[in-house]
Amino acid sequence: MASTAGTAPVTTAPASDDSSRRRGLTGYVLLVPGVVWLALFFVIPFYSLVATSLYDPGGSVFSGYEMSYQFSNYWHAIQDYWEPLLRSLWYAGLATLICLVLGYVLAYAIAFKAGRWKNLMLVLVIAPFFTSFLVRTLSWKLILADGGLIVNSLQAVHLLGPDGRLLATPFAVICGIVYNFLPFMVLPLFASIDKIDHRLIEASSDLYANPFVGFWKVTWPLSLPGVVSGTLLTFIPAAGDYINAQLLGSPNQRMVGNVIQNLFTQANDYPAAGALSMILMILIVAMVLFYVRRAGTEELL
């Protein structure tokens, strides 16, 4: 009874003409709500975003915009905002990595070591969602505040200079992102690790793999589906996040999400905001495709 990793080939049973046609129709009927939903809330907004990003930047919200296929909007957005763009990817990447390490250890412990506490621990992982994202991020502001317990203690042991601070630093922003997105990493990792047959790990140790090698050759590859979905679920929203940078950072930690939000709501520069949104999206899609390809082939090796 070997457990199967990856995807199993889907086979369709041959059916008589009549029933297969009916089944086909049923399939389309079942698709309708989803298609309507996607059309309303994805295709139309997406179309309007693409359109906005190509408007003539000379217009304004009050005088209206002209569609002039201004591809230069993209170029200008990159020129003006490459810094927050790169910073977003960097912060999100780093936070994802930290989440992966913390989340893997946690998920592994819950799956293999928690015994009868497993369900309780899973509930505790999800428990932060019971309060609002904003409230939790604000409480980090208190935790890291100047004159707070942590800053004072770090100053006392001279890890932080006398006027050193944690708030308004990249450290605070990344801490916030890691904290907020950790459950998105832990849950898929747990689902993958929990499925691993413990007897496979025993077999690896029977075949001369010490625990370290056994982990890299058996546990890690078998948990890759969870690693891939966990990192995607963490990285994608983290790259577009603006709450953490806004509440825990300073203008020096501005991420692309902050810029887009600012362009849309304060500066009212819709074309630039649209172009920047598109750039972020294209970047993420490209990186994700590349990553999934790589991870997919790695799993096959």
Partner: peptide, 20 residues
């Protein structure tokens, strides 16, 4: 002794082949 240090190998009842 640790299992990976013993000159002993097992053919497991459930095979325990590595699926990946």
């Amino acid at each position: 002794a640790k299992p990976y240090k013993r000159p002993v190998n097992t053919v497991f009842q459930n095979y325990a082949l590595f699926p990946h």
